[in-house]
Every structure is written in structure tokens, then in C-alpha cells.
Amino acid sequence: MAQFSVYRPWVVEPRSAFDELRRDLDAVFGRFGSQAPSVRRGVYPAANLYETTDAYVLTAELPGVSPDQIQISLEGSTVTLHGERKIDYAADMSAHRLERQSGTFRRAFDLPAAVDPDKVEAIHKNGVLELRLPKTPEMQPRQIAVQTG
């Protein structure tokens, strides 16, 4: 039987039994609709994944997180972001409203395919992290010239 590779972009660590079940169900029944079913609310940071012809682009909203507080690791096709958002106000300030959160985060993402680890670029600009993950040469589209016989 053919093995279908299921695209499950957002893997969260640690993976729960429910996630495993859902993954298995996805593998059996496939996916319906355009929205990936493995979207989990509440996992920080919120991220988007894009595809270009030669790369995947992962963006994450991390306002107030300085670049040195973000650790990025890549293992196979799994990208992990972890770090901390720190908010320190002087003790003599009185707070009228506190909506911004601080704390630690850790999140893993499964990419649809392996990427070239040596060519990954990370840009943190205006509080948005942008990871450019070039596809391995085998995964990139190729032009094949048709020759006349």
C-alpha cells in the first residue's frame, strides 16, 4: 500500500496522545478543506508558513522579544523556536492596565519537506521573525528541456 506523507505543519512539544491520534486519523482519512486541522490555539508564538518555488518561509509574531532571546534549531524537517519574552518595569511604576504577557515559549514546526540546514536565514524585524528555509536541491522544481528526436 502506498504511503502518503501527511503534511502536519505544527507539531507541539510535548506531543499529546490526542495529537498522535489525530495524526493517525489524518493519515487514514486525509484532510478536508483548506485549513490544516492541526492548528492549535494558545501555542506561542502565532506563526504563518509560506512556500516559494525554492524555499519555505516561516514567520512568527514576537514583538518585544529581542533577537538574542530567540533560539532556533533545525533537525531534519523540524524547526524549533524557543526563548523568552521579558517585560521589566521599574518597581515604582503604578500599572493602570497590563495586557502584554511575558514568559517563555517553545514551539516546534514540521515542514512539508527537508530543507538545507546550511542555507537557513533568520531575520527579526519589527517584532516579526522571518525564517527562510531553502528547500534541498532535490525538492526544487526543475526545468526539463524537451529535445526533438
Partner: peptide, 22 residues
């Protein structure tokens, strides 16, 4: 946007999360 509003002496301080804005 999410904001924090603080008061410190003779001034207010507002911090707003505006990801993607310069």
C-alpha cells in the same frame, strides 16, 4: 493592540505590541 499603561511620577507610559510595524 495589546497595551500596558503605567504611570510614573509626572508621566504616563504606554507600551503597545505592534508586530510588523516600523
Amino acid at each position: 493592540p495589546d497595551v500596558d499603561i503605567l504611570e510614573h511620577g509626572d508621566e504616563y507610559l504606554i507600551y503597545a505590541d505592534l508586530p510588523g510595524v516600523d
